Amino acid sequence: NQASVVANQLIPIQTALTLVMMRSEVVTPVGIPAEDIPRLVSMQVNRAVPLGTTLMPDMVKGYA
């Protein structure tokens, strides 16, 4: 099973992502693949992302 990127904390809207905000976890449905974590650093979320939420491509500006 492929690991996805999951929020390690509440990430407020417009926040630039850092490594400490994300973790990898095998979840359903599958979100952004964990191997993309380095690419996500400094990208902004376009909505508030609660703790434990799987990051989906449409939540990160410039990802999809």
Rank of each mutant, 00 (worst) to 15 (best):
N1G: 15
N1S: 15
N1P: 15
N1Q: 15
N1M: 14
N1R: 04
Q2I: 09
Q2K: 07
Q2H: 13
Q2N: 11
Q2W: 13
A3T: 08
A3S: 11
A3N: 07
A3E: 14
S4G: 04
S4M: 02
S4I: 02
S4A: 03
S4F: 03
S4T: 03
S4Q: 01
S4P: 01
V5T: 06
V5F: 03
V5A: 11
V5H: 01
V5E: 01
V5M: 01
V5S: 02
V5Y: 00
V6Y: 00
V6S: 01
V6W: 01
V6C: 05
V6M: 03
V6R: 02
A7P: 01
A7F: 00
A7W: 03
A7S: 11
A7L: 03
A7M: 04
A7H: 02
A7K: 02
N8F: 04
N8R: 09
N8E: 06
N8I: 05
N8L: 05
N8K: 08
N8M: 06
N8H: 06
Q9D: 06
Q9C: 10
Q9H: 07
Q9F: 14
Q9R: 14
Q9G: 04
L10Q: 11
L10H: 15
L10S: 14
L10A: 13
L10E: 09
L10R: 10
L10Y: 14
L10N: 15
I11Y: 01
I11T: 00
I11S: 02
P12D: 07
P12G: 07
P12C: 06
I13N: 15
I13F: 13
I13Y: 14
I13C: 15
I13G: 15
I13W: 10
Q14W: 15
Q14K: 14
Q14I: 05
Q14V: 05
Q14M: 12
Q14R: 10
Q14F: 13
T15E: 07
T15V: 12
T15G: 05
T15C: 08
T15K: 08
T15R: 06
T15H: 08
T15P: 04
A16E: 10
A16H: 15
A16W: 10
A16L: 10
A16G: 08
A16R: 10
L17Q: 01
L17P: 04
L17K: 00
L17H: 02
L17I: 10
T18P: 02
T18D: 05
L19T: 09
L19V: 11
L19R: 12
L19E: 09
L19F: 10
L19P: 09
L19S: 07
V20E: 10
V20R: 11
V20S: 15
V20G: 13
V20T: 15
M21F: 04
M21I: 04
M21A: 04
M21D: 04
M21E: 04
M21N: 08
M21P: 03
M21T: 03
M21W: 03
M22Y: 02
M22G: 01
M22P: 00
M22Q: 01
M22R: 00
M22C: 04
M22S: 00
R23T: 07
R23P: 04
R23A: 07
R23I: 06
R23E: 04
R23G: 09
R23Q: 04
R23C: 06
R23M: 05
S24A: 15
S24H: 08
S24F: 06
S24C: 07
S24Q: 14
S24P: 13
E25A: 12
E25K: 07
E25L: 07
E25F: 06
E25V: 08
E25I: 05
V26D: 11
V26T: 11
V26Q: 09
V26L: 10
V26W: 09
V26M: 11
V26K: 06
V26N: 11
V27F: 03
V27L: 05
V27T: 11
T28D: 15
T28W: 07
T28A: 12
T28H: 09
T28F: 11
T28C: 10
T28G: 06
T28E: 15
T28V: 09
P29K: 05
P29L: 05
P29V: 05
P29F: 04
P29R: 04
P29S: 04
P29W: 04
P29T: 05
V30K: 07
V30M: 11
V30H: 12
V30G: 08
V30W: 08
V30P: 11
G31Q: 02
G31Y: 03
G31N: 00
G31P: 00
I32E: 00
I32Q: 01
I32T: 02
I32G: 01
I32A: 01
I32Y: 00
I32S: 01
P33T: 11
P33L: 08
P33H: 08
P33Y: 09
P33R: 09
P33N: 11
A34V: 08
A34D: 08
A34H: 09
A34M: 06
A34P: 05
A34N: 06
A34Y: 07
A34W: 08
A34T: 07
E35Y: 12
E35M: 10
E35W: 08
E35L: 12
E35P: 06
E35G: 10
D36V: 08
D36T: 08
D36I: 07
D36L: 10
D36E: 12
D36C: 14
D36P: 00
I37N: 00
I37R: 06
I37G: 03
I37L: 12
I37P: 02
I37V: 07
I37D: 00
I37W: 03
P38C: 14
P38M: 10
P38N: 11
P38W: 08
P38D: 11
R39K: 15
R39M: 13
R39H: 10
R39N: 10
R39T: 09
L40G: 00
L40A: 00
L40P: 00
L40N: 00
L40V: 05
L40Y: 01
L40F: 01
L40D: 01
L40Q: 00
V41H: 00
V41K: 03
V41N: 02
V41G: 01
V41F: 05
V41P: 01
V41L: 14
S42C: 15
S42E: 10
S42P: 00
S42Y: 08
S42N: 14
S42T: 15
S42W: 07
S42F: 09
M43N: 04
M43I: 04
M43E: 04
M43D: 02
M43R: 08
M43A: 07
M43L: 11
M43G: 02
M43Q: 08
Q44D: 03
Q44M: 13
Q44L: 13
Q44A: 08
Q44F: 14
Q44I: 11
Q44V: 13
V45E: 02
V45S: 06
V45Q: 00
V45W: 00
V45G: 00
N46V: 11
N46T: 14
N46P: 02
R47Y: 11
R47M: 11
R47H: 10
R47E: 08
R47G: 05
A48N: 15
A48L: 11
A48W: 08
A48F: 11
V49A: 04
V49D: 02
V49R: 00
V49W: 03
V49K: 00
P50M: 12
P50W: 05
P50L: 10
P50I: 07
P50N: 10
L51K: 12
L51W: 10
L51D: 14
L51P: 11
L51G: 13
L51S: 15
G52E: 02
G52T: 01
G52Q: 02
G52S: 05
G52P: 02
G52I: 03
G52R: 00
T53F: 12
T53C: 08
T53W: 12
T53N: 10
T53V: 14
T53P: 01
T53I: 08
T53K: 09
T54H: 02
T54I: 14
T54Y: 02
T54G: 02
T54R: 00
T54D: 02
T54Q: 03
L55E: 01
L55Y: 02
L55T: 01
L55V: 12
L55W: 02
L55I: 14
L55C: 00
L55D: 02
L55N: 00
M56L: 14
M56Q: 13
M56R: 07
M56V: 08
M56W: 06
M56A: 06
M56G: 03
M56P: 02
P57C: 09
P57V: 05
P57D: 07
P57S: 12
D58S: 10
D58C: 15
D58Q: 12
D58F: 12
D58I: 09
M59G: 03
M59E: 00
M59Q: 03
V60C: 01
V60S: 00
V60H: 03
V60N: 02
V60E: 03
V60A: 03
K61Y: 14
K61L: 13
K61C: 15
K61G: 07
K61N: 13
G62E: 09
G62P: 05
G62W: 09
G62K: 06
G62Y: 08
G62C: 12
G62S: 08
Y63L: 07
Y63M: 05
Y63Q: 03
Y63G: 03
Y63N: 03
Y63S: 04
Y63D: 03
A64C: 15
A64S: 14
A64Y: 05
A64H: 15
A64M: 13
A64W: 05
